[in-house]
Simulated assay, not measured.
Amino acid sequence: MTEEPRLPAQDMIERLAPALSLTTRIRAVTALLAGMAGTVFVSALWWSEPGPLPGRTHLAFAMLTVFCLTWAGYGGWLLTRRVPLFATDQVIAAWIGLAASLATTAVVTVVAVGRGSGAGPALAVGGLFVAVALVLAVRAHARRAALLRRMHELTGREEGGTRSP
């Protein structure tokens, strides 16, 4: 009786589960489509505005366009992955959300102060969004770390990439 060749644990893990689950694919398509639709919508608004716009308005439109393009890029990147991500996608999405929250809070606060309405409400609402985004980023990093620890346990690899005895 011949013994079948043994697969390394990493190969077994990759063969057992598809690289992207249905939920991840749906999230990726949603991010891609929402980012593209947002880019088209914001750009159309920006180009169709009559007369010269103030600099801060151009900044706001540019920032929103960049955020939409970033989400579209994230969705496209996620759809092209053919390897297990170990929650890397969640970490990237959390950082995009945190950056968008911080930048939006800063711009809205500057506009509110420029209009004389005070920074309090803008900072309160923006601070809430930043806090939620920060919690999601910390949670995503913790989940990724736990998945990588589990992978190292299953494959017998230590952090340096060597096999333990």
Results as ranks from 00 to 15, higher is better:
Arg149Phe: 03
Val130Phe: 05
His141Asp: 15
Leu45Glu: 08
Val138Gln: 12
Phe86Ala: 15
Leu32His: 09
Val107Asp: 08
Arg150Met: 05
Ala146Trp: 07
Gly114His: 06
Trp95Asn: 13
Ala133His: 00
Ala62Ile: 01
Phe61Cys: 06
Ala100Leu: 03
Leu154Gly: 11
Ile96Lys: 14
Thr70Ser: 10
Glu159Gln: 12
Arg15Trp: 05
Pro18Ile: 05
Met1Pro: 08
Ala31Ser: 10
Gly76Thr: 07
Gly97His: 04
Ala93Gln: 11
Ala124Gly: 08
Pro121Val: 01
Trp47Arg: 15
Ala122Leu: 04
Leu20Phe: 11
Arg56Ser: 05
Leu148Gln: 08
Tyr74Ala: 04
Ser164Asn: 14
Thr105Leu: 02
Arg15Cys: 03
Ala124Phe: 07
Leu134Asp: 11
Ile26His: 11
Gly120Gln: 09
Ala140Cys: 02
Ala100His: 08
Ala137Arg: 11
Ala145Arg: 07
Pro52Gly: 10
Phe61Tyr: 11
Leu7Tyr: 14
Met63Tyr: 06
Thr109Glu: 07
Val113Ser: 14
Ala94His: 13
Gly116Thr: 06
Arg6Gly: 03
Thr23Val: 13
Ala99Gln: 10
Leu69Pro: 00
Leu20Pro: 00
Leu45Tyr: 02
Glu14Lys: 13
Arg82Val: 02
Arg150Glu: 15
Glu14Val: 04
His141Tyr: 06
Ala62Ser: 09
Arg6Tyr: 11
Val135His: 04
Gly114Met: 09
Gly160Gln: 02
Pro5Asn: 12
Ala28Phe: 09
Thr109Leu: 07
Ser117Glu: 14
Ala37Ser: 06
Arg15Thr: 11
Thr65Gln: 15
Ser101Gly: 12
Thr23Met: 15
Asp89His: 12
Arg144Gly: 04
Val138Ile: 14
Gly73His: 00
Arg150Phe: 02
Thr162Val: 07
Ser117Gln: 07
His58Asp: 07
Val113Phe: 06
Leu134Gly: 12
Arg115Leu: 12
Thr65Pro: 01
Val40Pro: 03
Gly76Pro: 00
Pro52Arg: 09
Gly126Tyr: 00
Ala124Glu: 01
Arg6Glu: 15
Ser117Phe: 01
Val40Met: 09
Gly127Gln: 00
Phe41Asp: 04
Glu4Thr: 06
Gly35His: 08
